[in-house]
Amino acid sequence: MSGGISDLDKNRTLEQLLQWQLRQVRGRIRELEIKEQQERRRREQAHAALRWKIQPQRSSSAALVHRGDCALYPAEGGFLTREEAMIALAEPDIEACQICKPETGLVDG
């Protein structure tokens, strides 16, 4: 063996460098996946805000129309179109949620 760094030592050092790079890339992938999930949730929430949903009537209260993103009735799916929500609000036994005020979105639409 001469006075320089051996091939074995060079390859062990290269291995450590590559492992470090792989950890860095995997960390970046995790960051990007989280960012992508957050963006998808944001788009879904924005889309839900443009839709409406009906909370079924309970024995002590009327059925309620909510904006799609209303937290008081967080049902998934079953969204109404603008026209369907307007028809529902015209019914005598269906009321608008007093918190999210779905009629505002209908008037502005």
Results as ranks from 00 to 15, higher is better:
Arg26Gln: 11
Gln55Leu: 03
Ser2Thr: 13
Asp9Leu: 06
Glu76His: 12
Arg12Trp: 12
Ile99Ala: 14
Ala96Gly: 07
Glu36Trp: 14
Asp108Tyr: 04
Leu89Gly: 09
Asp69Cys: 07
Pro102Cys: 01
Ala63Arg: 10
Arg58Cys: 09
Ala71Leu: 08
Glu31Gly: 02
Glu76Ser: 13
Glu76Asn: 09
Phe79Ile: 01
Leu64Gly: 02
Arg58Ser: 15
Arg41His: 03
Gln98Cys: 08
His66Leu: 09
Ala46Phe: 09
Lys53Glu: 00
Ala48Phe: 09
Leu14Met: 14
Leu14Ile: 08
Ala88Gln: 02
Gln24Phe: 01
Lys10Arg: 09
Ala96Ile: 00
Leu18Tyr: 11
Leu64Glu: 06
His47Asp: 14
Val107Gly: 09
Leu50Ala: 10
Leu18Gln: 08
Ile94Leu: 07
Trp52Pro: 01
Ser60Leu: 12
Leu32His: 11
Pro74Arg: 12
Arg23Ala: 05
Arg23Tyr: 09
Leu22Gly: 07
Gln98Lys: 13
Ile29Phe: 05
Arg67Ala: 03
Lys35Val: 04
Glu36Asn: 15
Lys35His: 01
Leu50Asn: 11
Arg12His: 05
Ala96His: 03
Ala71Pro: 06
Arg67Ile: 05
Ala88His: 08
Ala63Tyr: 02
Glu76Leu: 14
Leu18Arg: 11
Arg28Asp: 02
Trp52Ser: 01
